[in-house]
Nucleic acid binder design. Structure first.
Length: 582
DNA sequence: TGCGGCTATTG
DNA sequence: CACAATAGCCGCAG
């Protein structure tokens, strides 16, 4: 079958825009497509698989059912960017919590099979052997109902028939997932969250492949200022290190040896100059900086050491390619509440280094920060009318402070403390006033806290299951430690329902910008929890800024239509990431 | 060699 | 050092 015949077949299957079409693609073998009316296969020898997908995307724009982000990466790598998907792994993380979402595990979950007996791919171990579960090796579902774990890894060197079977199972998995989501009666938005999460996976594939614009010369200049010129050899590097160490150790008592990279030895060093501290963290040292010249030298050493080991020349060489793009692996949801994560330091780059993130020639960045996102989200998901009223203001903390009869700074600390589970310090006193003023929101948080303490099932408002671990984790712990863990789980649960819902709102905004930004040539280049960095041709800058605002309105309307909460973004057009202060 | 602890960076 | 993350080095157990 050719690509054109495949399009014709899908039309005969009644596939319309947004309808599910499962896809399995093996670039050397072909592509298989599954609808509720059957399977369509195009061999690579007849038409290029990714070109076929591109064609179908233009003509039909279905919602592509894929096992995971790996399919999206294959497509984006080939230059094919689809609008929507149903990412089975992403939906599994939403439904079942945690991070692991390989097909065998997803299948076991959806078929109510014991998860801890799920067969795993890779070398055979003590607990499995080749004939386990049985049935023919050509049959992906074993006699015991489990999915054969070696199937997905073999697909690259299999037959088009196998690729087709793989897409058929994906189709069935997606149908079962939809039924599960529909069964979450107290989370009516869960199916919408699943679609948003899937789109976020597409965005992550694009972010991973596109990278973040970064100017190597500017980055190297910044590194050079802190740690010196690029070492010419290992010997040179060792000499530079020794020189940095000496700048601290020359303030130490003569003859004293100390490896500054060892916290215990640093503690001994500090004792030798008459300073006794429980640990050597920067904030403790900062407080006594003036008592001895060694302290300041040590703090400076820490900064340089940090850049040298984590954000130095090695980091640049490994992650910044010659095309001026810094690349890391993106994940659409972490294992806890569901925020996006990125490797290669994209999410924790030192603020000073951001001056090297510069828009490319003829382009401009729009930077957009959501303001006070977590308390606004709390107002929305808890349905607290009084807090929602405060959230109609540009500065939510001003009316809260007025309501509580305390100053703004104290009000902010109190609200954050309530969401983080703080029980000591100044926040605790204001907590009682918060309880009185915003009882609905505070009850929402307390319920999450109690659920976390008792490991009861806890979901975000959008339906994400928050993983709680098992009670086996508490074995061999003292009563005191068990209590501490329980309290920690309470704080975790309390925070996760807010942080997780905020992540869902943020991702909805991000994928809306992704979808609407194409006509402006706008590409998201970075997502940072409550901040978007988007690049577009300079002449479209003003339109992009407007688009970001419009998309936030659209997002708020879809995500929390009845809450009355206002969401705000600070948006600026800039050349360098560091230009706008949030 | 793997893993917990310490440290630093970010939201 | 409240909640979350990535990441590097040290010290110790196996």
């Amino acid at each position: 079958m050719t690509g054109d015949e495949a399009l014709q077949s899908l039309r005969e299957h009644g596939v319309a825009r947004g309808d599910l079409v499962a896809i399995a693609i093996a670039p050397e073998i072909g592509v298989a497509l599954v609808t509720r009316h059957g399977t369509v296969r195009v061999p690579a020898a007849v038409d290029d698989p990714t070109t076929v997908v591109q064609h179908l995307e233009e003509q039909l724009r279905p919602r592509w059912v894929m096992w995971s982000n790996a399919t999206a990466l294959v497509l984006v790598e080939a230059g094919v960017r689809v609008a929507t998907s149903w990412d089975i792994a992403a939906v599994h993380r939403l439904l079942a919590g945690g991070w692991r979402a390989d097909p065998a595990r997803v299948w076991a979950y959806l078929n109510d099979l014991a998860l801890d007996a799920t067969p795993r791919a890779g070398p055979l171990d003590l607990f499995s052997h080749a004939g386990d579960g049985d049935g023919s090796p050509d049959e992906p579902i074993r006699a015991d109902g489990y999915l054969r774990p070696e199937w997905p890894t073999d697909i690259w060197s299999s037959t088009l028939e196998t690729v087709g079977r793989w897409a058929e199972i994906a189709w069935r998995a997606a149908e079962m997932q939809q039924a599960r989501l529909a069964g979450l009666h107290d989370r009516p938005r869960a199916a919408m969250t699943a679609r948003t999460e899937s789109a976020a996976e597409l965005l992550c594939a694009e972010l991973s492949i596109d990278g973040l614009p970064m100017d190597r010369a500017v980055a190297e200049a910044f590194i050079g200022e802190l740690v010196g010129a690029r070492p010419t050899s290992d010997t040179d590097a060792a000499a530079q290190r020794a020189q940095r160490d000496d700048a601290v150790l020359r303030h130490a008592p003569s003859g004293m040896e100390c490896d500054l990279r060892s916290p215990d030895q640093v503690k001994s060093l500090l004792r030798a100059i008459g300073v006794d501290l429980p640990d050597t963290r920067a904030w403790r040292l900062e407080a006594i900086r003036d008592t001895h010249p060694l302290i300041g030298a040590l703090l400076l050493w820490r900064k340089a050491e940090r850049v040298s080991t984590t954000y130095g020349y090695t980091w640049l060489d490994e992650n910044l390619r010659d095309d001026g793009r810094l690349r890391g692996a993106w994940s659409a949801s972490d294992g806890a509440a569901g925020r996006m994560t990125a490797s290669a330091g994209l999410h924790n780059m030192p603020a000073d280094m951001r001056g090297a993130v510069i828009a490319e020639d003829g382009h401009v960045f729009a930077r957009a920060d959501l303001g006070q996102i977590e308390p606004r989200v709390l107002a929305a998901v808890s349905g607290d009318k009084a807090l929602a009223a405060a959230a109609t203001e540009a500065d939510l903390y001003a009316p809260v402070a007025h309501q509580l009869g305390i100053d703004r700074a104290a009000a902010k600390v109190a609200v954050l403390g309530a969401m983080y589970g703080q029980t000591t310090g100044h926040g605790a006193r204001a907590l009682q006033r918060l309880e009185a003023a915003y009882p609905v929101a505070m009850t929402y948080l307390r319920n999450a806290d109690v659920a976390g303490q008792h490991r009861r099932e806890l979901r975000t408002d959008g339906g994400r299951l928050i993983p709680m671990g098992t009670s086996a984790d508490d074995e061999n712990l003292s009563e005191r430690d068990v209590r501490a863990r329980r309290a920690a789980r309470g704080r975790y649960g309390r925070n996760a329902v807010v942080q997780g819902a905020a992540a869902e709102l943020f991702k909805t905004w991000a994928v809306t910008v992704r979808a609407r930004g194409a006509p402006l040539g706008a590409r998201i280049v970075l997502c940072l929890h409550d901040e978007l960095l988007v690049q577009a041709p300079r002449e479209n800058g003003a339109a992009l800024a407007q688009l970001l605002d419009d998309c936030l309105l659209e997002t708020a309307h879809r995500w929390a239509p009845t809450s009355g909460v206002r969401f705000i973004a600070e948006i600026s057009l800039i050349e360098r990431w560091s230009d706008a202060k949030s």
